[in-house]
């Protein structure tokens, strides 16, 4: 369709959609004054029932744990899909040196990166393990851990990065994270009343060992998300290195 025709069609539709969306949101309660919701029911009960102080974490991993499993699966599938899309049919050996020549790092970056790396990793582990006590959790912490791995790439070079965090390590890590969530869910089915039933003792609120299986689920998700994002990054970086490789060696 020519640009003008498409714009006309879109404008007409968007105008009508704008009116509709406006009409729809006008039916919502005034901002800040939503009525009683399921969220309120849960907030009132969460510290008593699960001995957990972070309500969002309790919802993500307990009350609505199956949604989180679906979310984890989406990441899992996306990693596989990116690997499928970016795979190189020719299977040339990856010349990791090509990464070095094209992506020079200065000494400053190297120093700062390596100095920051342990801090980032520590922060990531803290966020993952305290997801049920203070804001955070498996997803957020996992992303931080993955960015730590990326720091390794920025500070070093592709060769170091690839050797340390390569696929034979990342794939099982991700699968263990995914499988761990499932195993815990099935344990709930076997030892409790339902899939993802919280069957461990709840401890006392504010401790790390509270909330039953919630901290364990946080750990599995953190592992899966961290590994998954690193795998996606590896795929992208490999693509770039292969492109550069072909440029360098005509």
């Amino acid at each position: 369709m020519r640009h003008r025709a498409r714009l006309a069609l879109f404008s007409a539709g968007a105008l009508a959609l704008a009116v509709l969306l406006g009409w729809g949101v006008l039916g919502l309660p005034r901002f800040g004054h939503t009525h009683d919701t399921v969220g309120d029911v849960i907030t009132a009960a969460v510290t008593g029932e699960r001995h957990v102080s972070e309500t969002v974490g309790a919802i993500t991993f307990d009350y609505r744990g199956i949604d989180t499993m679906g979310e984890e699966l989406i990441l899992f599938v996306a990693v596989a899909a990116v690997a499928i899309v970016l795979r190189d049919e020719h299977e040339e050996p990856l010349d990791e040196g090509a990464g070095r020549t094209s992506l020079q790092t200065s000494e400053t970056i190297r120093f700062i990166g390596l100095a920051l790396l342990p801090c980032v990793v520590l922060l990531g582990l803290y966020i993952v393990s305290h997801g049920h006590v203070s804001p955070g959790g498996g997803f957020q912490g996992g992303v931080i851990l993955a960015s730590g791995a990326l720091l390794l790439f920025l500070a070093g070079d592709f060769r170091t990065f690839h050797r340390t965090v390569s696929e034979p390590v990342g794939d099982p890590a991700e699968a263990v994270g995914m499988g761990g969530y499932l195993v815990i869910g099935l344990a709930g089915l076997a030892f409790g009343a339902a899939f993802l039933d919280n069957v461990l003792p709840f401890g006392s609120s504010g401790d790390i060992a509270s909330g039953g299986v919630i901290p364990l689920l946080n750990l599995t998700v953190g592992l899966e998300v961290g590994a998954g994002i690193v795998l996606i990054t590896i795929e992208y970086l490999e693509t770039i290195v292969r492109v550069r490789q072909r440029e360098v060696v005509p």
């Binding site: 969002v56 919802i59 949604d67």
Partner: peptide
């Protein structure tokens, strides 16, 4: 409301 935070996540 904590549920919308979980949904947004």
């Amino acid at each position: 409301d904590p549920i919308v935070a979980a949904l947004t996540l």
